[in-house]
Design a protein around this nucleic acid. Sequence first.
DNA 1: CCCCTTCCTTGCTCCAGAACAACGACGCCA
DNA 2: TGGCGTCGTTGTTCTGGAGCAAGGAAGGGG
Lengths: 227, 227
Amino acid sequence: MSDAGTARKPNPLPKLLAGIGEKDASKILEVANSTKLLAGQMILTGGERATRLFLLKTGTVRYYRLTHEGDEVLLGWLVPGDVFGLGTLLGSTTAYLGSARTVTECELYVWEQERIRKLAETYPQLAENSIRIVLEYLSGLATRHVGLVSRSAEQRLADTLLSLGRRTGIVHSWGVDVNVTNEQLGELAHTTPFTASRLLRSWKQAGTVSKKRGKIVIHMPESLVMD
Amino acid sequence: MSDAGTARKPNPLPKLLAGIGEKDASKILEVANSTKLLAGQMILTGGERATRLFLLKTGTVRYYRLTHEGDEVLLGWLVPGDVFGLGTLLGSTTAYLGSARTVTECELYVWEQERIRKLAETYPQLAENSIRIVLEYLSGLATRHVGLVSRSAEQRLADTLLSLGRRTGIVHSWGVDVNVTNEQLGELAHTTPFTASRLLRSWKQAGTVSKKRGKIVIHMPESLVMD
DNA sequence: CCCCTTCCTTGCTCCAGAACAACGACGCCA
DNA sequence: TGGCGTCGTTGTTCTGGAGCAAGGAAGGGG
């Protein structure tokens, strides 16, 4: 969302509550249940009836689908402020369209269906914000999809690393720290950790990045722009 | 949506207007502008400011994005009853997230932003329906995406042909007619017309399908189910 | 300080399916 | 009925990057 700013960002108003007065927003948050989950725990499973809406307060969540063979395909990487389980807002029953699991320890706001639907009646802005959010998810997935069919593994990896740097990177004078393993990066870019390792090596040799275990430092972001 | 039924379907209430009384629904349709477009005409372009909402009355529309090299990547195939340009419903300005072009001659209902927003105030059901529709698009794209990374060209082609048969096929005693060229089928399944031709040949030899120019007849749908 | 887990690297093999070329065939329109 | 444009077929070539195996390095925890 915001471009390369300072290291730690404050907690801005989540998109779900955009355009709602601060007082009302607090009220909405107050009636939510708060949960804390450890790393690696299931939050919801694709296909289940959507009965709860989630807003991620802290931590990282993996949103994915299972293939027919049981492999996980990443659909999105959720960060604080992101909402999921939006089917809950609908009157008729819908199913969650993917599964969600915590990657790190997480804090979540949770609303039961009945409650959030009542809130949506009071605050129509909630519905409008939801449309915007789902459209953004759709656009993001479309971008990933187009990238997958039209760009090389190297281009996808570079794109992924750059966008990760923008979203979650920590800016220093010597570059941008990105905390991510080769495997995670590879998955986001739809490639294998092997290919990721090889490409990172070539970029390291060019001085574009440097690596530690579980961390990549981008020194020359402009070298990663591949048209 | 509906399963293998009879040949020509009537014009059911579009999803956008689901749950709205027939009278109100007619009123909403009446205040739309109606347009008729020839085959191959642009309806909207990705990146433009979303100012009009479209509902497809008749015909087929191609919704796609351009790659960096200028190639088109199909995002969806819109049929009568489908809505697009949903960003128009939002208060803040948004951009269309892909381009739309008619494939065949089309009739469309069109609402200008101001008008549809006023309608959405009067009928909150419109907003709820929109959320459902975008979620369905998201789910559909997720399915295509997962298929692309986890299934073979043959499996994707079989899936595509089956779903096309279900959505647009004409049922006869001897099988299901699907009007589609190899090229279109290949594109929907993310493969080339060459690969499509080869696979169709092998299915023809197995007696599963037969072919004419621009048409495929599915004789044994069950043979196309590939787990 | 050492062990053990997790992560990273590197070389090698292999293949699905894209890309290209060239030809064949259907069917519309005059 | 013949010509032409679109669509379909088939053989061949070629390569990106997956898959696998094996070993190396960094940390964290006891």
